[in-house]
Amino acid sequence: MADSADAIRINGTAVEPPGDPRVSLLDLLRERLELHGAKKGCDQGACGACTVLADGERIVSCLALAVQYTGREVVTIEGLTGEDGPHPLQRAFVEHDGFQCGYCTPGQICSAVGMAAELERGVPSYVTDDLAAERIAPGRDEVRERMSGNLCRCGAHNGIVAAITETYGTEAR
Protein backbone atom coordinates (compact mmCIF):
# COMPACT_ATOMS: atom_id res chain seq x y z
CA MET A 1 0.00 0.00 0.00
CA ALA A 2 1.03 3.58 -0.47
CA ASP A 3 3.20 5.11 2.17
CA SER A 4 0.76 7.14 4.24
CA ALA A 5 -0.33 8.03 7.71
CA ASP A 6 -2.64 5.01 7.53
CA ALA A 7 0.25 2.60 7.24
CA ILE A 8 2.44 1.12 9.92
CA ARG A 9 6.09 1.40 9.00
CA ILE A 10 7.80 -1.81 10.00
CA ASN A 11 11.55 -1.99 9.52
CA GLY A 12 11.18 0.77 6.93
CA THR A 13 8.38 -0.86 4.96
CA ALA A 14 4.82 0.44 4.92
CA VAL A 15 2.35 -2.18 6.09
CA GLU A 16 -1.41 -2.00 5.97
CA PRO A 17 -3.03 -2.27 9.41
CA PRO A 18 -5.06 -5.44 9.92
CA GLY A 19 -8.79 -5.41 9.28
CA ASP A 20 -9.47 -7.17 12.58
CA PRO A 21 -8.92 -4.58 15.32
CA ARG A 22 -8.20 -7.35 17.88
CA VAL A 23 -4.91 -8.20 16.21
CA SER A 24 -1.98 -7.27 18.41
CA LEU A 25 1.14 -5.75 16.94
CA LEU A 26 2.90 -8.98 17.92
CA ASP A 27 0.43 -11.17 16.05
CA LEU A 28 0.58 -8.85 13.05
CA LEU A 29 4.32 -9.37 12.95
CA ARG A 30 4.31 -13.09 13.59
CA GLU A 31 1.18 -14.39 11.91
CA ARG A 32 0.61 -11.98 9.04
CA LEU A 33 4.05 -10.68 8.11
CA GLU A 34 6.07 -13.78 9.02
CA LEU A 35 8.43 -11.67 11.08
CA HIS A 36 8.95 -14.25 13.81
CA GLY A 37 11.81 -12.47 15.52
CA ALA A 38 9.55 -10.97 18.18
CA LYS A 39 8.54 -13.88 20.41
CA LYS A 40 5.39 -14.65 22.32
CA GLY A 41 6.13 -15.78 25.86
CA CYS A 42 3.00 -14.79 27.71
CA ASP A 43 0.82 -12.52 25.56
CA GLN A 44 0.07 -10.46 28.63
CA GLY A 45 2.96 -8.09 29.14
CA ALA A 46 4.80 -10.16 31.74
CA CYS A 47 7.89 -11.52 30.01
CA GLY A 48 9.26 -9.01 27.52
CA ALA A 49 9.93 -11.62 24.80
CA CYS A 50 7.82 -9.59 22.36
CA THR A 51 9.70 -6.32 22.87
CA VAL A 52 10.07 -4.14 19.77
CA LEU A 53 10.89 -0.47 19.26
CA ALA A 54 8.11 1.96 18.37
CA ASP A 55 9.50 5.36 17.40
CA GLY A 56 12.61 4.31 19.30
CA GLU A 57 10.80 3.40 22.54
CA ARG A 58 10.73 -0.19 23.74
CA ILE A 59 7.22 -1.61 23.99
CA VAL A 60 5.75 -5.05 24.62
CA SER A 61 4.06 -5.67 21.30
CA CYS A 62 1.65 -8.24 22.74
CA LEU A 63 -0.12 -5.44 24.61
CA ALA A 64 -0.17 -3.14 21.60
CA LEU A 65 -3.10 -3.23 19.19
CA ALA A 66 -1.68 -3.11 15.68
CA VAL A 67 -4.26 -0.58 14.48
CA GLN A 68 -2.96 1.93 17.01
CA TYR A 69 0.44 1.97 15.34
CA THR A 70 -0.49 3.58 12.05
CA GLY A 71 1.79 6.47 11.25
CA ARG A 72 4.46 5.07 13.55
CA GLU A 73 7.84 3.54 12.98
CA VAL A 74 8.29 0.02 14.34
CA VAL A 75 11.67 -1.68 14.41
CA THR A 76 11.94 -5.38 15.22
CA ILE A 77 14.97 -7.58 15.76
CA GLU A 78 15.00 -8.23 12.01
CA GLY A 79 15.34 -4.50 11.46
CA LEU A 80 18.31 -4.16 13.79
CA THR A 81 20.52 -6.16 11.47
CA GLY A 82 21.74 -3.59 8.98
CA GLU A 83 23.16 -3.92 5.50
CA ASP A 84 26.62 -4.01 7.03
CA GLY A 85 25.76 -6.96 9.27
CA PRO A 86 24.50 -7.47 12.78
CA HIS A 87 24.09 -4.69 15.33
CA PRO A 88 27.08 -4.55 17.71
CA LEU A 89 24.82 -5.70 20.51
CA GLN A 90 23.82 -8.78 18.52
CA ARG A 91 27.49 -9.63 18.13
CA ALA A 92 28.13 -9.04 21.82
CA PHE A 93 25.30 -11.40 22.77
CA VAL A 94 26.98 -14.16 20.77
CA GLU A 95 30.40 -13.40 22.21
CA HIS A 96 29.20 -13.30 25.84
CA ASP A 97 26.80 -16.23 25.46
CA GLY A 98 23.92 -13.96 26.42
CA PHE A 99 21.38 -16.71 25.79
CA GLN A 100 20.88 -20.43 25.70
CA CYS A 101 17.61 -21.36 23.99
CA GLY A 102 17.49 -17.97 22.32
CA TYR A 103 13.77 -17.48 22.78
CA CYS A 104 13.98 -14.42 25.02
CA THR A 105 16.91 -13.05 23.03
CA PRO A 106 15.27 -10.81 20.41
CA GLY A 107 13.26 -9.19 23.19
CA GLN A 108 16.33 -8.73 25.36
CA ILE A 109 18.23 -7.11 22.50
CA CYS A 110 15.43 -4.77 21.42
CA SER A 111 14.82 -3.88 25.05
CA ALA A 112 18.48 -3.08 25.59
CA VAL A 113 18.57 -0.82 22.53
CA GLY A 114 15.57 1.08 23.89
CA MET A 115 17.10 1.15 27.36
CA ALA A 116 20.34 2.62 26.06
CA ALA A 117 18.38 5.52 24.61
CA GLU A 118 16.69 6.06 27.98
CA LEU A 119 20.10 6.23 29.66
CA GLU A 120 21.26 8.73 27.04
CA ARG A 121 18.27 10.90 27.82
CA GLY A 122 19.01 10.73 31.53
CA VAL A 123 15.79 8.93 32.52
CA PRO A 124 16.50 7.77 36.08
CA SER A 125 15.65 4.39 37.59
CA TYR A 126 15.24 2.96 41.07
CA VAL A 127 19.00 2.47 41.38
CA THR A 128 20.14 5.78 39.90
CA ASP A 129 22.15 7.83 42.40
CA ASP A 130 22.17 11.18 40.60
CA LEU A 131 18.60 11.87 39.56
CA ALA A 132 19.61 15.09 37.82
CA ALA A 133 22.29 13.55 35.61
CA GLU A 134 21.96 14.43 31.94
CA ARG A 135 23.24 11.06 30.88
CA ILE A 136 23.28 7.93 33.01
CA ALA A 137 26.12 5.43 32.75
CA PRO A 138 25.13 1.86 31.84
CA GLY A 139 26.65 0.26 34.93
CA ARG A 140 25.79 -3.30 35.90
CA ASP A 141 23.14 -2.36 38.43
CA GLU A 142 21.45 0.14 36.11
CA VAL A 143 21.32 -2.49 33.41
CA ARG A 144 20.07 -5.22 35.74
CA GLU A 145 17.32 -3.00 37.11
CA ARG A 146 16.23 -1.71 33.72
CA MET A 147 16.29 -5.10 32.04
CA SER A 148 14.27 -6.80 34.75
CA GLY A 149 11.15 -6.74 32.59
CA ASN A 150 12.78 -9.17 30.20
CA LEU A 151 12.64 -12.65 31.69
CA CYS A 152 15.16 -15.32 30.80
CA ARG A 153 14.34 -18.76 32.15
CA CYS A 154 17.55 -20.26 30.81
CA GLY A 155 19.39 -18.04 33.27
CA ALA A 156 21.62 -16.23 30.79
CA HIS A 157 21.46 -13.06 32.91
CA ASN A 158 25.21 -12.71 33.43
CA GLY A 159 25.97 -12.96 29.73
CA ILE A 160 23.17 -10.58 28.80
CA VAL A 161 24.36 -7.93 31.24
CA ALA A 162 27.96 -8.38 30.11
CA ALA A 163 26.97 -7.97 26.46
CA ILE A 164 24.98 -4.81 27.18
CA THR A 165 27.51 -3.12 29.43
CA GLU A 166 30.30 -3.88 27.00
CA THR A 167 28.36 -2.48 24.06
CA TYR A 168 27.15 0.69 25.72
CA GLY A 169 30.07 1.53 27.98
CA THR A 170 32.07 -0.28 30.55
CA GLU A 171 31.74 1.91 33.63
CA ALA A 172 31.34 -0.38 36.58
CA ARG A 173 29.16 0.48 39.49
Binding site: R30, L35, H36, G37, A38, K39, K40, T76, I77, E78, T81, P86, Q90, R91, F93, V94, D97, F99, G102, Y103, T105, P106, I109
Partner: peptide, 14 residues
Amino acid sequence: GPLKVRGKAPFAAE
Protein backbone atom coordinates in the same frame (compact mmCIF):
# COMPACT_ATOMS: atom_id res chain seq x y z
CA GLY B 1 24.14 -17.84 17.96
CA PRO B 2 24.12 -15.64 14.85
CA LEU B 3 20.75 -17.10 13.86
CA LYS B 4 19.25 -16.63 17.31
CA VAL B 5 20.34 -13.03 17.81
CA ARG B 6 18.83 -12.08 14.47
CA GLY B 7 15.51 -13.71 15.37
CA LYS B 8 15.91 -16.14 12.50
CA ALA B 9 15.93 -19.45 14.37
CA PRO B 10 12.59 -21.13 13.61
CA PHE B 11 10.67 -22.34 16.67
CA ALA B 12 7.71 -24.74 16.54
CA ALA B 13 4.99 -22.09 16.22
CA GLU B 14 6.84 -20.41 13.38
